Computed example of a mutant assay.
Amino acid sequence: MWARLSAGAVPEKERLDWFTDIIAQELVPTAIRSERADCFWAEASVLYLGPVQVSTFEFAALQSRRTAAHVRRSDPEQYQIGLVTDGAMSLDQNRGTSGLFSGDIVLWDTSLPMSSEAVPREGGLVRAVTLSFPRDAMPLRGARVERLLAQRIPGGQGMGAILARYMRSLAEHGADCGPAELNRLGTVALDLVGACLAGMLGAEEGLSPEARTRVLLERIDAFVEHNLGDPQLTPAAVAARHGISLRRLQQLFRERGETPAAGIRRRRLERCRAELADPARAGRPVHAVAARWGFTDPSVFSRSFREAYGASPTEYRHRAVREALAQEVNDVCAGRTAAVSGRS
Results as ranks from 00 to 15, higher is better:
Thr110Tyr: 07
Val106Met: 11
Val119Ile: 11
Gly87Glu: 02
Val106Arg: 06
Ala42Thr: 07
Ser55Gln: 12
Asn94Glu: 08
Asn94Asp: 14
Gln63Arg: 15
Gly50Met: 10
Ile81Glu: 12
Val46Cys: 12
Ser64Met: 14
His70Glu: 09
Met138Cys: 13
Val84Tyr: 06
Thr97Ala: 13
Gly87Asp: 09
Glu77Met: 04
Gly103Ala: 07
Ser55Leu: 14
Leu107Ala: 05
Trp108Tyr: 14
Gly87Ile: 03
Val84Asn: 03
Ala44Asn: 12
Ser45Gln: 13
Ser74Arg: 12
Arg127Tyr: 00
Val54Lys: 01
Asp75His: 01
Pro120Tyr: 11
Ser111Phe: 01
Thr56Asp: 07
His70Leu: 00
Leu107Ser: 04
Pro120Glu: 10
Gln80Glu: 13
Pro134Ser: 12
Pro120Asp: 11
His70Thr: 02
Pro51His: 12
Leu131Arg: 02
Leu125Tyr: 06
Ala68Phe: 00
Arg135Thr: 13
Ala137Ser: 14
His70Ser: 08
Ile81His: 04
Leu140Val: 08
Ser116Thr: 05
Val54Tyr: 00
Phe57Glu: 09
Leu62Phe: 04
Ser45Pro: 02
Ala118Gly: 13
Tyr79Asp: 00
Gly87Tyr: 08
Thr85Cys: 03
Val71Thr: 08
Pro76Cys: 10
Pro113Leu: 05
Arg121His: 08
Met114Arg: 06
Leu131Glu: 04
Leu125Pro: 02
Arg65Thr: 09
